[in-house]
């Protein structure tokens, strides 16, 4: 092994970092806490700015989430608002059939998105990665990632203009006496519809992270496997996929942690056209049954519950990943 290249982009790290410390060496023996602290003190110093920001701008105001257990009124203040126990949680703890419907819809949509939406950026990234022409690849990438910047209001409006009951498609069908197809406003097609919209909006954007991972694949591995006579598919399976597996697993686990959150704005914009039975999800249910009235306590309570559920899901998913030999989000 030669020396690593010392050139390259300069870091933007602030000058507050420490100068090079003595090398900790590669010694194996177990160390005491104090020894480990001494060894890693510069590493900790590097973590300091980020950790400070997290503590100040995240954990400190997080204390405000006690309003989940209070009848919080902004004009009274957090500390003086009266305690109400778990009353704010009743919106999701009341066995309301509409809540159960919303939860079911949420889980179904989440499942569909993990099963059908999540893989698409990966496939797209692999497809782009396999293109011979670098210029074509860049051009296509630059086009496909644009819809990410459109707001949901515009995306929904465009879908309606194209596929709505009075949209371009149906106007065409009607004027040619071909009948019409109710794609929007059809409760049975709601989940496929919002799935298509998510794919349209974010699939290209989602490729970016996988393209970055793919850029690290050692081309010699390809060459070696090609020399071995590996087919393109075998190459994909044995060389390309393993190189992005870590990122895929990480994103999948984090996605699971978000399983109770599905496109609030996207859904609320289209709720009227299919009705609440088909479109109510956890966030819209909570919104209409508490938060909409400016009930800060309910919003905080639901946030806590969703956070706990997300935490448990990530914990379990991470355990599962460890069983499969992946490192997951954090190590054992």
């Amino acid at each position: 092994m030669g020396a690593p290249p010392m050139t390259g982009t300069r870091t933007t790290a602030p000058a507050s970092g420490p100068q090079a410390g003595p090398p900790p060496g590669a010694a194996r023996p177990r160390r005491t806490r104090a020894q480990r602290f001494r060894r890693d003190r510069f590493l900790l110093l590097l973590a300091l700015p980020g950790i400070a920001v997290v503590l100040l701008f995240h954990y400190l105001p997080l204390a405000g989430n006690v309003i989940a257990f209070k009848d919080y009124q902004p004009y009274i203040g957090i500390s003086d608002s009266p305690w109400v126990g778990f009353a704010n949680f009743s919106v999701i703890w009341n066995g309301d059939p509409e809540f159960l419907n919303a939860l079911t819809n949420t889980l179904v949509i989440s499942f569909v998105q993990v099963a059908f939406v999540f893989p698409i950026p990966i496939a797209l990234a692999l497809l782009l990665n396999s293109l011979l022409s670098e210029r074509l690849k860049r051009l296509v990438q630059s086009v496909l990632y644009l819809p990410h910047f459109m707001s949901w209001v515009v995306v929904v409006a465009i879908f309606q203009q194209m596929l709505g009951n009075a949209g371009l498609l149906n106007t065409f069908l009607r004027t040619h006496e071909l009948g019409d197809v109710s794609l929007l406003g059809n409760p049975d097609l709601f989940i496929p519809l919002i799935t298509a919209q998510v794919i349209w909006k974010d699939a290209g954007w989602g490729t970016i992270i996988f393209l970055a991972a793919l850029s690290r694949v050692d081309t010699e591995l390809y060459e070696a496997s090609a020399v071995d006579g590996a087919s393109r598919w075998r190459q994909l399976w044995h060389v390309t996929l393993p190189s992005i597996r870590g990122v895929v697993v990480l994103l999948l686990i984090l996605k699971l942690g978000d399983a109770l959150t599905v496109g609030f704005e996207q859904i609320i914009l289209q709720r009227d056209s299919v009705g609440a039975d088909a479109s109510e999800v956890l966030d819209t249910y909570v919104y209409y049954n508490g938060v909409i009235g400016g009930d800060w306590g309910v919003a905080a309570a639901v946030g806590l519950v969703k956070g706990l559920v997300g935490l448990v899901l990530v914990y379990l998913a991470n355990k599962f990943a460890h069983l499969l030999g992946e490192s997951g989000v954090y190590q054992k």
């Binding site: 100040l56 105001p61 405000g64 309003i67 919003a299 946030g303 806590l304 969703k306 956070g307 990530v314």
Partner: peptide, 20 residues
């Protein structure tokens, strides 16, 4: 790591953020 990871699940409300 856990300190960082937890922030994914629990977010402060807008009023405590404003007060800070």
């Amino acid at each position: 790591l856990m300190t960082v990871l937890f922030t994914l699940f629990f977010t402060p409300g807008i009023i405590p953020m404003y007060l800070l």
